[in-house]
């Protein structure tokens, strides 16, 4: 038996987003066809906003190769940055949870890092490290580390008193408490942090890339290139791939979260 309540709920879950998507496409068409001079009189090609069904017209040959190369570069940057952020962030969170004075010493600097605009960080990293892969990754780490640190710290600090007392009564080492209590307890919070960071890592990899005028272009540089050459179709496609990259990472971590903590914690809705 399927009860009508469940059906209604899943219908709402499908209809809502679909309706918004259709509205979005309609608005897109409206803009594409109401803009003056959107279509070149000579060739009929869209010049500013390609309508959705013509989006992939230019997606072939060199354009496709360049987009895929850029996508590979940006993906590699984002994933490398995110991996470093995850390890470093969790370690920092654990370190800060060990003593109030450590937390107080590091916290203001993390906040400062968090609020510094990426635009200010990129040129600095290029000067410091050079316009290379390492600098790109460094930018990505700086942009994406904060949610992981703060969620690890918050997760560990929210272990209830009773559970802490339970371990305290056994005179456990800090390592035992960390492995058997604090990290498992904090893991849903850590995964939430990872998901937020994944989005930030993609932004870091792409926005950072805008400023790299040397080296192989990632998605950011490619978007700039298409923009400067009035290639709106390819520019839109590149943006679409950037979105997909962020979405994949977000969903990926949602899935990992579900597998790891879904059984005992219900934070994991995709």
């Amino acid at each position: 038996m399927i009860d009508s309540h469940t059906v209604k709920k899943s219908l709402v879950a499908i209809i809502g987003p679909t309706a918004v998507f259709v509205a979005f496409l309609s608005a897109w068409y409206a803009v594409a066809y109401s803009l003056d001079n959107n279509f070149s009189p000579a060739s009929g090609k869209p010049m500013i906003v390609p309508p959705p069904h013509r989006l992939f017209e230019d997606f072939s040959g060199t354009v496709r190769d360049r987009i895929f190369t850029a996508l590979a570069i940006s993906t590699r940057t984002a994933l490398t940055g995110l991996a470093i952020s995850a390890v470093l962030g969790v370690l920092l969170g654990i370190l800060m949870a060990q003593a109030k004075w450590i937390e107080r010493s590091l916290w203001p600097h993390l906040i400062a890092l968090q609020v510094t605009p990426i635009i200010a960080i990129v040129p600095l990293m290029i000067r410091l490290i050079g316009a290379n892969f390492t600098a790109r990754v460094a930018v990505t780490v700086i942009i994406s580390i904060f949610p992981i640190v703060s969620n690890t710290l918050f997760g560990i600090q929210s272990v209830p008193q009773g559970l802490r007392d339970l371990f305290k009564l056994h005179n456990c080492t800090r390592l035992t408490v960390l492995l058997k209590l604090q990290l498992p307890y904090a893991s849903p919070a850590i995964f939430t942090g990872l998901r937020v960071s994944a989005g930030l890592a993609v932004i870091g990899a792409i926005v950072g890339d805008f400023f790299f005028t040397r080296g192989d272009p990632g998605l950011g540089q490619l978007i700039t290139f298409f923009f400067l050459n009035n290639l709106s179709g390819p520019m839109f496609i590149t943006a679409l791939f950037a979105t997909l990259l962020g979405l994949m990472l977000f969903l990926g971590f949602g899935l990992v979260n579900r597998v790891v903590v879904g059984r005992w914690h219900d934070s994991s809705t995709l």
Binding site: G162, L166, L169, K180, Y185, R263, H265
Partner: peptide, 14 residues
């Protein structure tokens, strides 16, 4: 030796 039973069951949820 001693064992403490707390007000909450203080079980590890996982």
């Amino acid at each position: 030796s001693l064992q403490f039973v707390f007000q909450d069951s203080t079980l590890l949820p996982w």
